[in-house]
Design a protein around this nucleic acid. Structure first.
Length: 468
RNA sequence: GGCGGCGUAGCCAAGUGGCCAAGGCGGAGGUCUGCAAAACCUCUAUUCAGCGGUUCGAAUCCGCUCGCCGCCUCCA
């Protein structure tokens, strides 16, 4: 299995530190507002990576954090006249709901920065005593020039960094590129005690401290959006490695941004589309298929129209699953026919190549073709039926690897009302009362279901459009 | 200015040295069907932004040009 490592800028063979186990840390959100499509992409990308690794037999331990102490949270709290903790709590709760709606598996650990302040204080203390950090008026800064490889992940040259620095000038810092580990409390801000006086942690320290607590000094995969490469991940590395002297994360994976129009979607630009609004309009699986249709490292342009197309494409797959459930749920599956055997291997080759989901999805669609062939003959030919059931089982397995067909997916049967209408239409057709049959079909369609007559009987599917 | 990425059919998007350039959406014709729908069959890029070069051979490697985006500041 190969993964692209941002650190080395090349695809590398993936070998976890401990055979059979993978430790993965993914940067989560700063909960000061509702999560948007960009967060959804990151979550879905790493959800798929996690699921795939699991399907390949790895025991995967995942951590996704909440950075619930930050300037923006404080600003929001002040603006609303509530506590920062309340703001954090509100958006963490919302984020959890969003993730569930998207079919993203909860991480094994979802630590909050505010619950790990002592770990951070301890880490900062060690950095100070090692001489890589210094204290000024209750602030603590990391001294960049004490960590020579600073800039390696992002490919930044330290001198140029200084030249083009748009960093605010702070005379107290030894070097403008030094970053804050600890910020002395200002009036009205939440603070915690520390050897340097009351204050709060800087932005990057929480990830260094929490990843270490839950995954150890060195772990396998560190993920996040490309926008975190600098300075966030760069600083995480500096903090962690300056203390331990051992490598921090072994593989750095970064997902591309979601753009709106030709511009990056981000909270600060105010051009976001919140997940909670999004899931009202499109199904989670359609959204997932749309996202996975582009490689995770590429940029992706938001378009509801593209998601609708994805929803339509997805139906080619889900219809097969429905057909088995509707017509052959009790039928015995045979072994997978030889003709269908290569698909899993092709799927895995695609995924093994830096999680090439567009290609993997292509394999699924190719698999659907022969499957429809078996489905056509299923009622007349028991062999075809057994092959059909076995083949669709295989399809379901692969789809689930991508996180499709989860609990959120619409696999439930039609409401009783619809079922009755279908039955009535069946009778009308037997009586060759076509007018009534068509009328009933229209009624059923009005309720959001599509009836199709197949050799095995009427097939019911939810109408296209992607709505949940 | 520095670093990184992208430009493949009407649209989206894989492919990164050599079988006919995946797959999806859309479109065209046909089979099937009471009519539909779906499915099935066939078709829909002699060509990969442009120009040079390397090679027996390039969308794929190299150079240049044009266009677009991201990071360098809070950000998934």
């Amino acid at each position: 299995m190969k993964v692209y490592n941002t650190m080395t800028r090349v695809k590398e063979e993936f070998t976890p530190l401990v055979a059979g186990q993978v430790s993965m840390y993914v940067c989560g959100v700063t909960p000061y507002d509702y999560s948007h499509i960009g967060h959804a992409r990151s979550a879905i990308v790493f959800d798929v990576i996690r699921r795939y690794l699991t399907s390949r037999g790895f025991r995967v331990r995942t951590v996704r954090n909440y950075t619930d102490v930050d300037d923006k949270i404080i600003a929001r709290a002040n603006q609303e006249g509530v506590s920062a903790a309340e703001v954090g709590e509100r958006y963490i709760t919302a984020e959890r709901r969003d993730m569930e709606a998207l079919g993203v598996l909860p991480p094994d650990v979802a630590p909050r920065a505010t619950e790990h302040i002592p770990d951070m204080v301890a880490l900062i203390g060690r950095l100070v005593s090692r001489g890589v950090a210094y204290v000024v008026d209750g602030d603590v800064y990391f001294e960049i020039r004490r960590f020579p490889s600073y800039g390696r992940l992002s490919g930044k040259n330290l001198d140029e960094l200084l030249a083009g620095a748009r960093v605010e000038v702070d005379e107290r810092k030894r070097d403008p590129r030094d970053f804050a580990l600890w910020k002395a409390a200002k009036p009205g801000e939440p603070s915690w005690p520390s050897p340097w006086g009351p204050g709060r942690p800087g932005w990057h320290i929480e990830c260094s401290a929490m990843s270490r607590r839950y995954l150890g000094e060195t772990f396998d995969i560190h993920g996040g959006g490309t926008d975190l490469i600098f300075p966030h991940h760069e600083c995480e590395i500096a903090q962690a490695e300056a203390d331990t002297g051992t490598p921090f994360a072994r593989y750095w994976l970064h997902n591309g941004m979601v753009n709106l129009g030709a511009e990056k979607m981000s909270k600060s630009l105010g051009n976001t589309l919140a997940i909670r609004e999004l899931v009202k309009r499109v199904s989670p699986d359609a959204l997932r298929v749309w996202m996975l249709g582009t490689h995770y490292r590429n940029q992706l342009e938001w378009s509801e129209e593209r998601v609708r197309e994805a929803a339509h494409a997805l139906e080619r797959l889900t219809r097969l699953v429905h057909d088995v459930q509707t017509f052959w749920s009790g039928a015995a599956a045979a072994g997978l026919p030889d003709a269908l055997r290569p698909f899993r291997g092709r799927f895995e080759s695609a995924m093994d190549d830096d999680f090439n989901t567009p290609q993997a999805l292509g394999v699924l669609f190719e698999l659907s073709r022969p499957l429809y062939g078996y489905g056509e003959r299923a009622s007349a030919d028991p062999d075809a039926r057994a092959a059909f059931v076995a083949g669709v089982e295989e399809l379901v397995t692969l789809m689930r690897t991508l996180g499709l067909l989860g609990p959120g997916a619409e696999l439930a049967g039609p409401p009783l009302e619809v079922a009755r209408l279908v039955e009535a239409r069946g009778e009308a057709r037997v009586n060759r009362d076509w007018k009534r049959a068509d009328q009933l079909r229209d009624e059923i369609q009005g309720l959001g279901w599509l009836v199709e007559d197949t050799p095995s009987g009427p097939r019911l599917t939810r109408k296209a459009g992607g709505a949940p």
